[in-house]
Design a protein around this nucleic acid. Structure first.
Length: 581
DNA sequence: GCCGTTTTCGGCCCGACTGTTTTCAGTCG
């Protein structure tokens, strides 16, 4: 059973935490953290690379020592250093770091003085009043620990972007109405368009910071004020989301926006570049000695290190700084680049609207084609279509297309990929369709090899066009099923079929890093709404967000094509039709 | 422990806020 990159990353993260609690060299700790992140995000399976004797030093942050540890982990499933650390410190101790306000030094102090090893023991010790007497601790810290642990037990800590937007917009509007406020924007992972955000980072320019802070902490959705200072304050809203506010002068807006947008890794990399040039970047500007040389706009900050402005979605330190330096930043896909949508449902299965309503709503969005892809009958809960009902729908679409202006409905299906990789409809009916979207909706727990073979087999079907939501993840609810996406992507290239980025805010599947991999392999991505009602075409915007995070450009996206350009790309039967036409 | 358009050694991002101190360490973003 090969280990996944995420498993290896988790081992390095735990080593970093334990080393930090032990007071190890902070740069050594950081090396493990960086490597954990790099391995976790690395496109290829590190286990496979090791099997094939590939050089691991291509992974940024992995040198001789960590490459050797990765090989050890792949071979044995364990890491000697971690085992040794577990002998020295209890394994559960790292969970104490999850409590806000407890860092490595304090965790160490609590452990050494009270032999606390778990969250429950920490809770008890705090309840018994044992924390307050430790040096460097006090009553407030003790009370905070109790409160945080109790809240920690029943709270999900990340919010889907779509939900976070609902909290952010009225708050931003409120701050903009505050006298003296210039700019008021949301930065952080929200601005980088991450699929989930841990908190909201607001940036405001104002001459009177105190007045803005005052307005902020009195916002009527504020449940708790965590901190409140001259230029920085934090609150928790009733919804449970934490909001951090930073107030700066207009001359620092650009520098502060870069700083607050992050990511942290991107900022660190930028500051290193600046440092090598004798410059210092902080949230107030770019400085040569005492003199500020830039900072009012983001572009001015990047310009000091000879880089063009970098779109926020790319700022993850995944190569964007090198690409910028080489003048090779991608021209990212935009919502307006989408010509059509290749995955939508009607009330024939589990949708809410009929064919015409869906067509008109799509046309209103500026789309020129819409594929109707209801479920197939295996998915009984959705009242999926069998061959007979699908044939009726095909006829009805033909009728509607004869009168419809400005948009074309494409005949399609979201056909179930059965456990053995067969498709849930006869070939004869699939051949009559413009687009066949295949999807896994059952048997999520197959072992990796069987799950992968199942999907690969489906993709070889001559009518197969697009693999829908390729990992099946439901954000915050269901993990992706275990599948080898590298093989799936290569199969798509070999078969001439495509992968979907399902734009439903609960899915956003493919995730950014796999979009980037597909792009590298020359596989096109279809950004689809998976609309179940005429209001769901808004989803496309979310899909574009994720696609931009995956470096996709217009030409990487299947449904940026016009209908004429699209038809030859949809399945090999369609190619045949075109060739014989 | 990693890394190099100065470098294979000597660096490694930077500042605000809190609580516990009585000038600052720890934590966070």
């Amino acid at each position: 059973m090969p280990l996944h990159n995420a498993d290896m990353a988790a081992i390095f993260s735990e080593i970093a935490d334990l080393l930090e609690i032990q007071g190890a060299n902070p740069f050594r700790v950081r090396a493990y953290r960086n490597a954990a992140r790099a391995v976790g995000e690395f496109g290829k399976s590190v286990s496979t690379m090791i099997e094939q004797n590939e050089d691991l030093k291509g992974i940024r942050g992995v040198g001789n020592d960590l490459a050797e540890k990765l090989r050890e982990i792949a071979a044995t499933g364990k890491c000697g250093l971690l085992e040794q650390l577990h002998h020295e410190m209890p394994a559960a101790i790292t969970e104490l770091l999850e409590i806000q306000g407890l860092g490595p030094k304090r965790v160490r102090a609590i452990h050494d003085a009270l032999h606390v090893r778990t969250l429950e023991q920490l809770h008890r010790a705090a309840k018994e009043g044992k924390i307050r007497d430790l040096p460097g601790f006090g009553e407030k810290t003790e009370a905070h620990i109790i409160e945080t642990i109790e809240a920690h037990l029943h709270k999900s800590r990340r919010f889907k972007l779509a939900l976070a937007e609902q909290y952010a917009q009225p708050l931003i509007a409120c701050l903009r109405r505050t006298p003296g406020v210039g700019e008021a924007v949301v930065a952080g992972s929200f601005r980088r368009r991450c699929s989930t955000v841990g908190d909201l980072d607001l940036l405001v320019t104002a001459r009177d910071a105190a007045a803005v802070t005052e307005r902020f902490v009195r916002y009527d959705e504020v449940a708790e004020v965590l901190s409140s200072g001259e230029t920085r304050s934090s609150v928790v809203l009733r919804s449970g989301i934490q909001v951090d506010l930073r107030v700066v002068a207009p001359a620092s807006f650009g520098a502060a926006l870069v700083y607050l947008t992050g990511s942290k890794a991107h900022n660190i990399a930028m500051r290193r570049i600046a440092q090598q040039r004798g410059l210092k970047i902080n949230e107030y500007g770019v400085f040569r000695g005492e003199k500020r040389i830039a900072g009012d706009t983001e572009a001015s900050v990047y310009a000091t290190i000879d880089l063009p402005w970098i779109p926020p979605e790319l700022r993850e330190n995944r190569g964007e700084l090198r690409a910028a330096a080489a003048q090779r930043l991608p021209t990212l896909i935009q919502l307006a680049d989408l010509s059509g949508d290749l995955h939508a449902h009607t009330k024939a299965s589990d949708g809410h609207d009929d064919l015409l309503d869906m067509a008109l709503a799509a046309r209103e969005r500026g789309l020129s084609y819409l594929a109707i892809t209801d479920h197939s009958s295996r998915l009984a809960v959705t009242h999926g279509l069998d061959a007979k009902r699908l044939a009726q729908q095909i006829d009805e679409i033909d009728r509607i297309n004869r009168t419809l202006q400005g948009i074309v409905l494409l005949k399609g299906i979201e056909v179930d990929i059965l456990e053995d990789g067969h498709l849930d409809l006869p070939d004869a009916i699939l051949k009559r369709l413009d687009v066949v979207v295949g999807a896994v909706h059952s048997h999520f727990n197959l072992p990796r090899e069987r799950q992968t073979e199942r999907v690969l087999r489906a993709m070889t079907h001559p009518s197969f066009s697009i693999l829908a939501h390729p990992t099946g993840r439901l954000i915050g609810e269901r993990d992706p099923y275990d599948i080898d996406l590298v093989r799936v992507i290569r199969k798509a290239r070999a078969c001439g079929c495509h992968l979907e980025l399902d734009a439903h805010p609960d899915r956003l599947d493919l995730a950014d890093i796999y979009c980037q991999m597909a792009k590298a392999e020359g596989v096109l991505i279809s950004i689809d709404s998976d609309a179940h009602s005429r209001f769901d075409f808004d989803n496309l915007r979310r899909g574009v967000d994720e696609a931009r995070r995956g470096w996709l450009e217009k030409h990487d996206v299947l449904n940026s094509r016009s209908l004429d350009q699209l038809r030859p790309l949809l399945g090999r039967t369609a190619v045949g039709k075109v060739a014989s036409a």
